[in-house]
Design a protein around this nucleic acid. Sequence first.
DNA 1: GTACCTACCAAACGTTTGTTATGTACGTCC
DNA 2: GGACGTACATAACAAACGTTTGGTAGGTAC
Lengths: 199, 199
Amino acid sequence: MTPARGDHDARRSDVSAAVWRVLADRGFGGLTLRAVAAELNASTGLLTHYFPNKRALLAYALDLLDRHNLERPRPAAERTSSADGGRALLRAVLLDILPLTPDGVAGNRIWVGSWDAALTDPELAADHAARYRRARERLTGLVAQAREQGELAGEASVEEVAAGAQSFVLGLVVQALFAPDEFPPERQVELLDRYLDGL
Amino acid sequence: MTPARGDHDARRSDVSAAVWRVLADRGFGGLTLRAVAAELNASTGLLTHYFPNKRALLAYALDLLDRHNLERPRPAAERTSSADGGRALLRAVLLDILPLTPDGVAGNRIWVGSWDAALTDPELAADHAARYRRARERLTGLVAQAREQGELAGEASVEEVAAGAQSFVLGLVVQALFAPDEFPPERQVELLDRYLDGL
DNA sequence: GTACCTACCAAACGTTTGTTATGTACGTCC
DNA sequence: GGACGTACATAACAAACGTTTGGTAGGTAC
């Protein structure tokens, strides 16, 4: 649990995991150093040892969350074999964004919550804009692949299709977070599939 | 500018307009009573005269913003004459949600910013959920009308189409706020039209 | 004129917050 | 063993915040 002494990065990761838990539970308005320290059964002195200030602590935690999202095992995508085409990959990646699992809910809660701070802080805003641009580029590649394989029709450019798909899932995230009973996982999946059918 | 003495409601509206300006400029993390009072060239005593506490001040301002959105002149919808069908009305209402004008940007900035607080506060969350449910119901009615008039095809239920459309525009709002240069108004409109063509 | 109400102002209060300063304990190296 | 660095804890500090308190001014009714 507690990293070996001297394992600086592991300690920073532990702090970030505590930040995520506080964010998912209390939102950005509830993110205080004391709350994060309490989550670790530690004092704020621990936090200030590893991060120069609150802003750096938050930026690192968001960056790490993003990297974890990008690098972690992909339940949806893993069920997509390499024999499947671009459309199935596209579907899997979009499914992976949705809050279909408790972890998915928590992660999305943090990202949606981050938008208020990000829309005010130019650095955070730039990070977010870059993050979503990269996501659109990934989707664009998958759309292009599906197009080549004859799995997606349409006249719109692959960039427009990707931007539209990202819009759809981001908005569905928001709706599902606010109305989980009305947007259970099965309905989210069905809405996405209907959307893909319209492409 | 300053309402007649005794015009209690007008004064509360003035306060709310100041709250909106602070929210649009500084986000929810920057919403302090001192900031709102400064926006009015007044003291916080004025605010506490009209609202029992900060929470009531915010709730009222969000409610009033919603009501203003619902009641204000509709540039997009007004260009839709009654001879137009449900599809045109649906399009107009969806266009009206998008941040296509400076006011639209400001309003959406406030709503997107409100999500962090709302996802933590059960009362705010319930307000938001009800608000978005009502919006889906309105969209559902328009989809049904367009269906009857043969303007929209498809096999999905009108509720699913409405939920999908709301997802699309909410997500497009987020993307446009974070990347206004990549999502200028014309592109937003085009993306929406492409989306409607896929229904 | 007096009493009461409304509309604010200014200051104080109590609490919370991020940050800084100081200290102890432990491990490593010479 | 001493010096140094790392890893925290604790306490204090300064600032900010929402709320409360006490006050003045103006308007209205009797």
